[in-house]
Write a protein that binds this DNA or RNA. Structure first.
Length: 1007
RNA sequence: GGGUCCGUGGCUCAGCCUGGUUAGAGCGUUCGCCUGAUAAGCGAAAGGUCCGGGGUUCAAACCCCCGCGGACCCA
């Protein structure tokens, strides 16, 4: 016997033990199958997996398992992304550090070691969490971005970039985190709302008047070099009055309303296009506070990016804005950067030296006010970039950085993504395409410690550069760690006689994972697996559009001029029930462990795999638990099959005569199989899960099993029984194999405890082949017929319900009124499921039409003759389309037609017609009904007594024996009563009510 | 401002790729039923302008266009 209730925990223990003790995964790994190169997108070693990571790995595992069953030997190396700022920040927090200085004084070597320990510890914890999801990957041999061999793959790429002229060092304005003191990539900037000042400042023009600018970053004013206007926008020179005194100002004509912020009235003196303003010089507003500004000639310049917003005049600080910087290149403006790595003003900033830029905001506003240059000061709530790890607001800063010239690769990238299969299609053709089209050069250098060191050496004497493409060039041996600071000690001799030292930077961590498609197989240090490249398949969340999908494509184009993957499945995000992101601050985080412990691994997997992968998944406990109910139904069907097959020592695989319902369920099975295979090939995992439950619940549990129940209860070697067993077995055996990749633990357990009992099996269900559909068994006509049978039975039940007659009470006849032919084949099915003695199919069931005139309609037309018309109508036997009465033509809408069905019948509609039931019960039917009522109650009592299904009893029924006349044997048979006595109840006694009749029933074990 | 996705009963979703019965599930509500696979299950009822508008078509939840609302990404 199977346990009566599905309890995931025990099953999981059993199966994990089986897999471990018999080394199932390892054995599968030894099999030589067709090659399939899958690359795992490495999760970052943060320490805990969240629902999204769990979902991600479950998708991967499902696909890997299905590939193995389909005869492939997929690569299943898990990856770990272990470098970078997030870990540095965590370690800094643990050590209580505030800035890079703390790290330097602590010692870089010790710090890096701490980072490594942290990453390794987290990797181990997360490995256990993934294993607990029944994810089969090669956990013993993962790829790690911190291994020298892997770092070598990145060096290889950078050397390639250098050879192709795609690596360059240039001064650029970058996103800069003043806390982490490093440049950040676009992908490392997180946008969040924040409040900033919004100020309107006037810059005094040398030839009189002012130009009005607007900014949200007062701290950039000390670095102001120019003011930009749009050459094609109309500007106005106005005379504005404040407290009665006039001032002349220039701003965009369409934006004059902003003057209301600081002036009472104004008048336009003249208008002109922006281009006429080019070259006009002005005085820096803080020239007195910042002596350095005296060296600079400030002037108005032209820029297309200036839009008609705020004042239409943009303050340009070449060191603090990307567009500003580029504009500076065009006009050959000076790049004046008075802000240091920590976001603190340098000596060059004069009065502001030593102030943090955010603190400086206030001081600067104050100074502008004193000089009467501030028109208005407001607050603005806007999206602003923050460091992805420490949440500090970023600043823009011009620095020297190393770049990959992605802009030169753009065209090729767009070309390459067209060759990739995207699931869904728009992930590539729209979303990714859009991202690439907007791509900028990739800043790959970080001024940090925990990362792959940039393999660039520069001669201290002549400035010559050497890019190292392999760790073998730095005399690497197995045990040598290549992280900072050790690598910093490596020097090369320059041809000029000088010494080359390494650039101190490390790689942007996104570059690490970008080389995964060859780094994970050790290329180029090892090349034996490189023939696998490029990847056949990868899958990650939609956030990886700008992350891993992109970094891999860029790195791969540098090295190999083609895309590193052939197919990409993009999945969604996990959100909370209301569709919000899960976050600690909202307190709505659901831990995968918690879910697993509550509903089990398989239930969790089936739940997350049942919604469309590319859509966001709103996690709902209720929905997840619903899946448990479905699993329970599957469990119950298997328990049913198992119970009887075991009693009869059934062995599968014998020739049997299949009956109608057997052939039907097998047809449904093959159809499901066909659907599953086609969905699987298109990575439409949710369709497989949906189809599975629909088949098991709708077809197998609700329809097939009730149909064969009586066959299963037949004694001895009944052929009908054996064919039912064989059919059930085929259905379950195949269904389990189809769903095994999705619900591996459950499928394995049922394979071991159900399938194995009735046929020779392999060691594990995962050594079986994924089933192929046998399309010859699909019988469309039979399926259609059965659909009709279902509809008829349902209509019959509905008619019963109207007549208030329980299904347990047999009925004499059912008349099916329909034009559909050839329903005789389903006669038995209907008889059985409707509990009727006879079923007739007719085209027209006799019924009486009652035709009355619609007085409301005919009254106005026929007036006084209406009564005569009523007489005429009463003689009609059928409804005419049209009639003529006393020379007036009348349509059938003048008639009200009612149907009267014969006395003693009730009906209900179905898609092909109507079903009538005869509601008259005669003596014999009544006795049968009573017999069934008694049986039902005795069965209930047997169950309450916990009797074995096969055990015999003696029954006592306090009822007039006449009521059961002719049905006594039936009752004894059904209830396994050796004796049925109409006497005072003994043993386990209960009182019952059948309709209005009160009876006492007693049963006891037969000894 | 640009791009993408989503919008289907009270709620959560499937169906859309590949147009074709009466648009399906689950949850919830009400009323019934069934049961030796039932710690279960099943049915019925109520509940739908398939976001709105236009187009293509014999036929549109589905394909196309224009809006509206929400989410995400970018500027």
């Amino acid at each position: 016997m199977l346990p009566p209730v599905y309890s995931p925990k025990e099953i999981e223990n059993d199966v994990f033990r089986l897999w471990r003790d018999n080394r199932i995964y390892e054995k599968l790994k030894e099999r030589k199958g067709k090659k399939f190169y899958f690359v795992d997108g490495p999760p970052y070693t943060t320490g805990r997996i969240h629902l999204g990571t769990a979902w991600n790995k479950v998708i991967k595992d499902t696909i890997l398992r299905s590939l193995r069953m389909r005869g492939f030997s997929p690569t299943d190396t898990p990856g770990w992304d272990m470098h970078g700022l997030p870990i540095e920040v965590k370690v800094e927090q643990e050590l209580g550090f505030k800035s890079k200085r703390d790290i330097e004084s602590f010692g870089v070597e010790k710090f890096v070691q701490k980072c490594m320990d942290y990453a390794l510890r987290n990797k181990d914890m997360m490995t256990e969490q993934f294993k607990a999801l029944a994810v089969w990957m090669d956990w013993e041999k993962p790829y790690m971005t911190i291994k020298a061999e892997y770092m070598n793959s990145a060096w290889f790429a950078i050397k390639k970039a250098h050879e192709k002229g795609l690596l360059e060092r240039k001064k650029m304005v970058v996103n800069w985190c003043p806390r982490c003191e490093t440049a950040l990539a676009e992908a490392e900037v997180e946008y969040a709302d924040r409040e900033d000042p919004s100020i309107y400042v006037k810059f005094r023009l040398k030839n009189g008047g002012f130009v009005l600018v607007w900014t949200t970053t007062p701290w950039t004013i000390p670095a102001n070099i120019a003011v930009a206007v749009n050459p094609n926008l109309k500007y106005a020179k106005v005379r504005a009055f404040r407290n009665g005194s006039p001032e002349v100002l220039i701003l965009a004509e369409s934006l004059l309303d902003v003057l209301a912020k600081g002036y009472e009235t104004w008048e336009v003196l003249e208008t002109f296009l922006g281009k006429e303003l080019e070259g006009i010089e002005y005085e820096h507003p803080l020239a007195e506070e910042i002596p350095y500004q005296a060296n600079i000639r400030h002037r108005i310049v032209l820029a297309d990016f200036v839009s008609a917003e705020n004042t239409g005049c943009v303050h340009v600080a070449t060191a603090h804005g990307v567009e500003d910087f580029e504009l500076g290149l065009k006009y050959d403006l000076e790049v004046f950067n008075p802000v240091d790595d920590r976001g603190i003003f340098t000596e060059q900033a004069g009065k502001y030296a030593g102030l943090n830029v955010r603190e400086a905001n206030e001081v600067i506003i104050e100074d502008l006010l004193k000089k009467d240059l501030l028109i208005a000061e407001e607050k603005i709530f806007h999206r602003y970039g923050h460091c992805w790890r420490c949440k500090t607001p970023i600043i823009f800063r011009a620095t020297e950085q190393w770049f990959i010239r992605i802009t030169e690769l753009k065209e090729k990238m767009l070309e390459e993504i067209e060759k990739v299969q995207w699931i869904p299609e728009w992930a590539g053709s729209a979303r990714f395409r859009d991202w690439i089209s907007n791509a900028k050069d990739w800043c790959i250098s970080r001024q940090r410690y925990w990362g792959i060191p940039l393999p660039i050496w520069i001669c201290e004497k002549c400035g010559k550069m050497k890019v190292v493409g392999s760790i073998t060039e730095v005399e690497w041996k197995d045990d040598l760690d290549l992280h900072r600071p050790r690598i910093d000690a490596v020097k090369f001799n320059c041809d000029c006689g000088g010494v080359m030292g390494r650039v101190k930077d490390v790689f942007d961590v996104w570059f690490d994972s970008g080389v995964a498609s060859w780094g994970s197989i050790g290329y180029p240090l090892k090349s034996e697996k490189f023939d696998l490249w490029p990847a056949d398949f990868i899958t990650e969340g939609h956030d990886q559009t700008r992350g891993w999908f992109y970094s891999q494509l860029g790195a791969s184009l540098i090295c190999f001029d083609k895309a590193p993957y052939k197919a990409v499945l993009m999945h969604g995000f996990t959100l909370d029930e209301q569709g919000r992101k899960m976050s600690k601050s909202l307190g709505n985080v659901v831990e995968p462990e918690e879910v697993i412990s509550q509903i089990g691994i398989d239930c969790f997997r089936l739940y997350v795999l049942s919604s469309a992968v590319w859509e966001d998944l709103k996690f709902s406990w209720e929905e997840a638990r619903n899946v448990l109910r479905n699993i329970n139904i599957l469990w119950n069907t298997i328990r049913f099959a198992h119970t009887y097959m075991s009693i009869d020592r059934f062995k599968a695989g014998k020739e049997v005569d299949l009956s109608l319902e057997d052939r039907w369920i097998l047809s449904r099975l093959e159809r499901f199989n066909k659907e599953a295979v086609s969905a699987m090939e298109r990575y439409q995992l949710h369709r497989v899960v949906k189809a599975f439950f629909e088949f098991i619940i709708e077809d197998f549990s609700r329809w097939y099993i009730p149909l064969i129940r009586s066959r299963v209860w037949e004694e001895a070697e009944s052929k009908r029984k054996l064919s039912a067993y064989e059919t059930m077995f085929r259905v379950l055996d195949k269904s389990l194999r189809i769903i095994a990749p999705f619900a591996p633990v459950l499928a394995e357990w049922l394979y071991q405890n159900f399938v194995k009992s009735f046929r020779d099996t392999k060691e594990s269900i995962f050594m079986e082949e994924y089933p192929k559909a046998d399309e010859d068994l699909i019988n469309e006509e039979l399926e259609d017929k059965m659909k009709i049978a279902k509809a008829i039975v349902e209509a019959g039940n509905s008619a019963r319900s109207k007549a208030r007659i329980k299904l347990r009470w047999p009925l004499r006849e059912m008349i099916v009124e329909t034009k559909i032919k050839g329903l005789e084949v389903i006669l038995d099915v209907i008889l059985k499921q409707s509990n009727v003695k006879e079923v007739k199919f007719v085209e027209n069931f006799q019924k009486e039409l009652i035709i009355k005139p619609d007085f409301k309609k005919i009254g106005p037309i026929l007036k006084g003759k209406a009564k005569e018309f009523a007489e005429f109508v009463s003689k009609l036997k059928e409804v005419p389309e049209e009639m003529e009465f006393e020379g007036v033509k009348l349509g059938k809408d003048c008639l009200i037609v009612e149907e009267r069905i014969p006395e003693g019948y009730e009906f209900a509609e179905f898609s092909g017609g109507r079903v009538y039931i005869n509601t008259q019960l005669d003596e014999n039917l009544l006795r049968e009904a009573y017999a069934r009522e008694v049986v039902r109650r005795i069965q209930q009592m047997r169950k309450e007594m916990n009797l074995n299904v096969e055990e015999f009893i003696v029954s006592y029924v306090e009822i007039d024996p006449k009521l059961l006349e002719g049905w006594i044997e039936y009752v004894k048979n059904e209830t396994r009563s050796r004796e049925l006595k109409f006497a005072n109840a003994e043993g386990y006694v209960k009182e019952w009510e059948i309709e209005d009749l009160k009876i006492r029933i007693g049963i006891r074990r037969w000894i």
